[in-house]
Amino acid sequence: MSSFLTSSFMHNIFGGLAQGVIFSLVALSLVIIWQSTHVLNFAQGAMAMFATYVGLTEIGRGVGYWWCVLLSVVVGMALGGATERVLIRPLYGKPEINPIVVMVGFLAVLEAVATSIWTSTARTIAAPFSQIYFQSHGKLVLLSPFIIFQIVLAIGIMLLVAALFRFTKLGLQLRASALAPEVARLLGVRVNRMLTIGWMLSAGVGAIAAVILASGSFGLFPTDMDGVFVAGFIAAAVGGLESPIGAIAGGLLIGLAEQFILAYWSPNVAPLGGIIILVVALMIRPQGIFTKSVGRRV
């Protein structure tokens, strides 16, 4: 057993999962927005980065780590809600390309503003978990308390989101607003409010991904989330943009693929992992692996 845990195969599994949960969170946040407003939010990563800078390093100065995490999520949610109200709401009913262009622009603005305020050097904030790997009989197990924390936090957030959508009145109204906005309105659901809440939730989930990056040994820098966004976006596309489970699975898959390519091929081509999975998935199931094959009425 212990030799199994220290095997290079398991090293790659742990490393891949640790990376994958970050992609999964971003993918999940993209799916939440896609489902509620049919917008592909290209600024998702940058919004998370910005919220985390504000929460972890700016207003979070001097307070404990957990307060910082909470602040980042709250700032992220506020930013998400404001973005929907100010930038996205005027674009409903307009061509689908409009919100994409606006959000790509918003991405550039957020990164530029972050760089000018906080410079482009990485910032870290120490999580109260050791980054030192466990050992078994003198050999390393590629797991540290921090990696366990990162995986547990991500899974906890996913379960929380799932429970919110599945079991609460708010979740029911969010689902109805996404599935059938007109019917929801006829039943008295305040759909516009639900769309704003959807963006808030999504941005809060995204912020957690940036918080994990900022808590790790390499820290967070203003363009750090670009690569994570691409992986998360591919994960959401592979899983099927309609499926939260698919997005999460897609994220884990890409994390693992990148890790194995890194280990057995070359670190330089690791980001190819996501692209390869995307190409294969688009060839086999272009509608997404987890999407049920039902037609959409238009």
Partner: peptide, 13 residues
């Protein structure tokens, strides 16, 4: 949605 969720939705407002 399930039958019950459709009904609950009708009652929420």
């Amino acid at each position: 949605l399930t039958v019950e969720d459709n009904l609950r939705l009708g009652a929420l407002a």
